[in-house]
Design a protein around this nucleic acid. Structure first.
Lengths: 101, 101
DNA sequence: TCACGTCATAACGACAACGTGATACTACAT
DNA sequence: ATGTAGTATCACGTTGTCGTTATGACGTGA
């Protein structure tokens, strides 16, 4: 996690966001995430690793399972704020378009 | 701007963030941004275009100059919140490391 | 009209990220 | 010890993104 840009990059991938959303309600093991998302196991594993490296998620082995959980639920606030800004931008775009027509 | 991930992608590039920061204090024309950042003119133009498409920035031609300005300064709050989370993650990482050693 | 400053775009090469299929590794049960 | 379920990783091909160089387009003033 070098720069701020790198941090944003963590959330700039649809499947990774999907995986992250999966953990909103609580810890899950890899297979559970796979089933919830429909993504391949290898892919889920990769994204979880990235999220772990980024410090967004914590890895907790338990027997033969490995559970992952969001460390700071504040990330979801970040997602929410970004979504809000995005929608506002979209509205503004439409207004600008309407002004032309 | 299809998905939320795409929106995050806008902020996931160091040079693009640099360009955006340049506009924090107010509108600037392209050449001014080029001088402030030290990036090539073509590159600045590209990033500004992307920021415009994303609805983060507004393009305003004025004579032979083209000014760009941030539409919703709330984006800087987003940057700030992300930075805060990033630093918190970093602290947590170090704590986890310290616990091992 | 011509030249110049400003900005945008095209074409290209370099490199990174994504997803997949196959394989290794681990813990546990038989 | 062998098998099995769960997880991680490797190697690979594909695609996307970044930055550069060169060129095009536009407005302005001489």
């Amino acid at each position: 996690m070098e720069s701020l840009a790198d941090y944003f990059k963590v959330f700039s991938e649809p499947n990774r966001l999907t995986v992250l959303e999966t953990l909103r309600t609580g810890p899950l093991n890899v297979t559970a995430v796979v089933e919830k998302t429909g993504l391949s196991q290898a892919l889920v594993s990769k994204h979880l690793k990235l999220l772990t490296i980024a410090g967004v998620v914590r890895r907790r082995p338990e027997g033969s399972l490995v559970f992952y959980e969001v460390i700071d639920k504040g990330v979801f606030q970040l997602l929410a704020q970004a979504r809000k800004l995005m929608l506002a931008s979209r509205r503004q775009q439409l207004d600008a378009l309407a002004a032309i027509l």
